[in-house]
């Protein structure tokens, strides 16, 4: 059984936001204008969080790409009153959009603020409507959405492997953000395989997880930046 995980090397990340752009195109994320954004209603499945390290004059502005952590012990799943959020056997945390009642208990429970609520009906410019990804369902007004590790790509890869009468390989499946990263800062693979790149990197001295003390056990592992 695979256990999908991601490693993000902050030393390699240039903060170019290609991952965000790729994610938006891949996952049919609504175009949010500057007005709604200023009011605090945005939707990003992966986001670059700005933070400041140190104090002036020894100060560094940093950016941290943050997808869903796909926690081993997610806070979001247990709070959902209708069971609209689930973790599949390979550890990917997903949402059944058609079950979500929009109570926003999960957005409140998630320590990583990865969950976005659809405050209004998502809209795209007319020219873009024809170019939406047919593999990803469109979320309506009033439901919560978040990063799925491009789960639809896993389904497709599995179908392909089945058609070719072989086992699914870790290389068959890669999320859009990892694929788009121009500086090779993102790695994706099977954490259950001790020799996979992500496994090896996750054991590095630079490896850390966000808010580890909450016991969520994220499957997104960061490699810290050199000073």
């Amino acid at each position: 059984m695979h256990r999908w995980g991601m490693v993000i090397d902050l030393d390699r990340c240039s903060g170019c936001q290609a991952c965000m752009a790729a994610c938006h195109a891949e996952n049919n994320i609504a175009i949010i204008g500057p007005e709604e954004s200023a009011m605090g209603r945005t939707i990003h499945w992966i986001e670059l969080l700005p933070f400041i390290e140190g104090e002036y004059p020894h100060i560094k502005a940093r950016l941290l790409p943050r997808p869903c952590m796909h926690c081993e012990h997610p806070a979001c799943i247990k709070v959902c009153p209708v069971g609209a959020t689930y973790a599949n056997e390979e550890g990917i945390v997903g949402i059944v959009y058609s079950r979500c009642i929009g109570c926003r208990y999960c957005t409140t429970a998630c320590p990583y603020t990865v969950r976005s609520f659809n405050w209004y009906k998502p809209q795209w410019p007319k020219e873009m409507e024809g170019s939406l990804n047919r593999d990803v369902s469109i979320r309506g007004k009033g439901v919560v959405e978040k990063c799925s590790f491009c789960h639809h790509r896993l389904l497709k890869a599995r179908e392909r492997a089945k058609a070719e009468k072989r086992e699914l390989l870790s290389e068959d499946y890669i999320p859009a953000c990892v694929q788009a990263c121009p500086s090779n800062a993102m790695y994706f693979g099977d954490l259950n395989d001790p020799f996979s790149t992500v496994s090896i990197l996750s054991r590095e001295r630079r490896a850390f997880k966000l808010l580890e003390d909450l016991g969520t056990e994220p499957k997104v592992i960061y490699l810290s930046e050199g000073m």
Binding site: T107, T113, Y120
Partner: peptide, 13 residues
């Protein structure tokens, strides 16, 4: 939708 309220991503209740 709830855009009509003053609730936001940060303060969602």
């Amino acid at each position: 939708g709830l855009i009509e309220t003053n609730l936001t991503d940060q303060v969602s209740w």
